[in-house]
Measured scan of single mutants.
Amino acid sequence: KFGRVHERAEGPAKILAIGTATPFHWVDQSSYPDYYFRVTNSDHLVDLKEKFRRICNRTMISKRHMFLTEEILQKNPNLCSHNEPSFDVRQDILVSEIPKLGKEAVLMAIDEWAQPKSKITHLVFCTRSGVDMPGADYQLIKLLGLSPSVQRVMMYQQGCFAGGTMLRLAKDLAENNKGARVLVVCAESSAIGFRGPSEDHPDNLIAQALFGDGAAALIIGSDPKMGLERPIFEIVTTAQTFVPNGDCHLALHLREMGLTFHCTKDVPPTIAKNVESCLIKAFEPLGISDWNSIFWILHPGGNAIVDQVESTLGLEPNKLQATRNILREYGNLSSACVLFILDEIRKKSGREGLKTSGDGLDLGVLLSFGPGLTIETVVLR
């Protein structure tokens, strides 16, 4: 008597548009150690500064975009301390800036989509910054002038794996609601975790050397309108798992001094060791076991992770080039990073006149991972 209210779509979910945005301000990685130790009044920690310089040199990052300028840091000195309470200051900045950054990426996506924004039916927003109620999803709806009846899902504090999570959720929403057009937004800022150095917490140096700011937005829907919408990728399958006891290797915690970062040297080999089982589960039903026969979007948690995944799986050097390019130009953008790589690989395919948006290949994989050593596996066509 009370059956399904919403009719299912006929076809699989497809990515119809991609937009990205970054803050205008950026830092050069080669000179960042001098800048970082100067603005945090830590130049007296000579040995720690040299250690940080070595870490920065190993990241293979060229530059990173950041909202925090020297002027902002001078006005808010607690942000430059390692342990002073600064959460309220971070909140005041990020509750406002995260939706604005997301808006810039959304406008780029809508411009490519070339359809009225009134056709957006759902919003899925993800960030690890600016936790608030009502959330960044609500603020973004107002900034864009979208209908208050847009169906919203707000996900805070997920971390680097969440780019894949957003695709998984959007696929379910698009395929189970005929005519749905799902706006996916990942907006991230390193301002939540920026803090001064400490000899007692070397993990913090890794975070300060890796993370950048950026937002990515996608429009996802099934059954694209012929002649009006141009699909870029099809989302074939999605899956999530985590490595048992992985939280002892990688975890982040909200504290009075901001978001703290805990990471062990076992993260790269542990991820590399567990990736292939995810690939087998995803691609065995499709008859694929040659990992060089697919295109790759791999989250660059750090250069060591990229190198070890490449080595463990025997990947050809060009397979992870898009990942390395984004890491070099932006650093680790947390949940937004794989979506930047997705954009990079389709643009490169277009520039080179390849037959598909995925490096000329039919199928590919998007792998994202993060806290708890959670792994998201997304098969794309």
Rank of each mutant, 00 (worst) to 15 (best):
G19W: 07
P134G: 05
G19F: 10
V379L: 11
R328P: 06
S42W: 02
G246M: 04
P12S: 09
T241V: 01
D28S: 02
G302T: 15
Q139S: 15
A17I: 08
D359M: 09
P12R: 08
Y330V: 07
A9W: 01
E50A: 05
H25Y: 10
L327A: 10
L259R: 15
Y32V: 03
Y36H: 05
L342P: 01
E7G: 08
I305Y: 07
F261I: 10
H65Q: 04
R255G: 11
V243K: 11
T69G: 05
L380Y: 03
A336K: 00
K273W: 09
L367S: 15
Q139A: 11
G372K: 15
W291L: 12
I232L: 04
S334H: 14
T22L: 05
K103R: 11
T270R: 06
I15A: 01
E7D: 08
L286Y: 11
T59A: 11
N78V: 09
P99A: 14
N292R: 09
L68F: 04
G302S: 14
V89M: 01
E71L: 03
N83T: 09
E10G: 11
I280F: 04
A282P: 02
I141W: 08
V379G: 15
I232H: 07
I294T: 09
G370P: 05
P371K: 09
M60T: 03
R38L: 01
E344I: 00
A17P: 02
L361T: 08
D266E: 01
L107I: 09
R328A: 10
I93M: 11
N57V: 03
A251Y: 00
L367P: 15
D290K: 06
A336Y: 11
E229V: 09
I61F: 05
E97H: 02
A322I: 13
T323W: 02
T374V: 05
L228R: 05
V5R: 09
C337G: 15
R346C: 01
K273S: 13
P285D: 04
G3S: 14
L327P: 04
F283G: 05
L143G: 02
S42M: 01
L250N: 15
R346Q: 00
L101R: 08
V5E: 13
E10I: 12
D343K: 04
V309I: 09
V89W: 06
K348R: 12
H82E: 14
H44W: 15
L342V: 02
Y35L: 14
D362N: 06
R64W: 01
G364H: 03
L320F: 11
E104G: 04
S129D: 12
K14I: 10
C248D: 14
P134I: 01
V27K: 02
L320T: 00
A136F: 12
R58E: 15
H6S: 10
F369I: 10
I305P: 07
I141T: 08
R351W: 06
V267N: 14
G302C: 13
L313S: 04
R38E: 01
D88H: 09
S335P: 12
L315I: 07
M257I: 07
L366E: 02
S334K: 15
K347M: 11
M60G: 15
L123R: 08
N303P: 13
P371Q: 14
W26P: 12
E276K: 11
L48I: 08
Q308S: 11
F37Q: 05
K142I: 01
E84D: 10
E10K: 08
V379C: 12
W26R: 10
P268E: 12
G302V: 08
G360M: 06
P77S: 10
I61S: 03
D43E: 14
E256G: 09
L16T: 01
E276P: 07
A304F: 00
D362E: 02
I271K: 10
I280G: 04
G314K: 02
R346L: 04
K265S: 05
H44A: 04
L123N: 02
F369D: 15
D47W: 06
S118G: 13
Y36F: 03
I326S: 07
T356A: 06
K103E: 11
G102N: 00
V306A: 11
G360H: 13
K100E: 10
G372E: 06
F2L: 05
P371D: 02
V27S: 07
A13M: 04
T241R: 07
L250C: 09
I280C: 15
Q74P: 03
G358L: 05
S289Q: 10
F295G: 05
F52L: 08
L48D: 00
F242A: 05
E352F: 15
V243H: 13
T20N: 02
I280A: 10
V243A: 11
K265F: 07
I345K: 00
L366Q: 10
G364A: 02
P269D: 15
Q240M: 01
I98S: 07
E284S: 03
T40L: 06
Y35E: 01
D132S: 07
I341A: 12
L146E: 04
L373I: 12
H253D: 11
N83M: 13
M257P: 13
P99V: 15
K49Y: 00
I120K: 00
I297C: 15
L252T: 14
L279M: 11
R324N: 10
T237K: 15
P77G: 02
K281F: 05
F24P: 15
Q308W: 13
S129R: 08
A272G: 08
Q308K: 04
D92E: 15
F283T: 14
L48S: 06
P285K: 03
G287W: 09
K117E: 05
R328D: 01
K14M: 12
Y35D: 01
N332C: 02
L101P: 02
L361C: 13
G258W: 01
P268L: 09
G370A: 14
D362I: 00
D92I: 01
V236D: 10
V243P: 04
G130S: 10
K63E: 11
S311L: 02
I288P: 11
I93W: 12
Q29L: 10
K273H: 00
D43A: 00
T59S: 12
W113E: 04
E7V: 09
V243I: 12
L252W: 13
V5L: 05
H262L: 02
T22P: 09
M66V: 06
S311F: 06
M257E: 13
K319M: 07
K49H: 06
G102Q: 02
P33H: 01
C248M: 11
L250Y: 03
L366H: 13
T69P: 07
G364F: 01
D43N: 04
E70A: 06
P134F: 11
S147V: 01
M257C: 09
G145D: 11
L363K: 11
A304E: 13
L101Q: 06
I120D: 00
E329F: 00
Q29V: 05
E276T: 10
D111P: 02
P134A: 13
P231C: 03
K281Q: 08
G287R: 07
I93S: 12
F87G: 13
D247C: 05
E344K: 10
I61M: 01
